[in-house]
Amino acid sequence: MAVAPAPVRHAHEFTPQPWRDRRLERILGNLLRAGVLISAAVVLCGGSIYLFRHAHEPADYHVFRGEPSNYRTIPGVIQSVRDGRGRGLIQLGLLFLIATPIFRVALSIVGFAIERDRLYVLFTAIVLFILLYSLLGSGLTS
């Protein structure tokens, strides 16, 4: 029996099972792609309407006026979409865009729960809680 060779120090020998959550990665990847494509499609729609109507007006962002409430709150945005306003549609797309990472966090909780990984369910739940806490205080929903 030959003497075992001296151990070569490679990282993978120290971690017999590196964690690869392939399935969760694929699901989260698809969610992010779908979210971003849906919001891009809505923004593009709204943008076309907006440009069709206002293309030749001067662009002026030099002075800050703040957006009117129909571009600032969720009910306001929905109302302006109903009124057929292009900019309302853009804001709706941006709301989808903002919601995408938050959905990503929420879906991760489910993913880690399926893997029976309690520690990471807890971690992810803490993150979601902090996120929702800061969003609910923002006046977005009123």
Binding site: A59, Y61, S134, L140
Partner: peptide, 26 residues
């Protein structure tokens, strides 16, 4: 994730302009 929380807050304050954000986002 970090930006989503802030973006929600800033949209609520009227900092997110649709005409400017449209070309930026796309």
């Amino acid at each position: 994730v970090t930006a989503a929380a802030s973006a929600g807050v800033y949209l609520g304050r009227g900092y997110v302009d649709p005409g400017l954000s449209m070309p930026v986002m796309l």
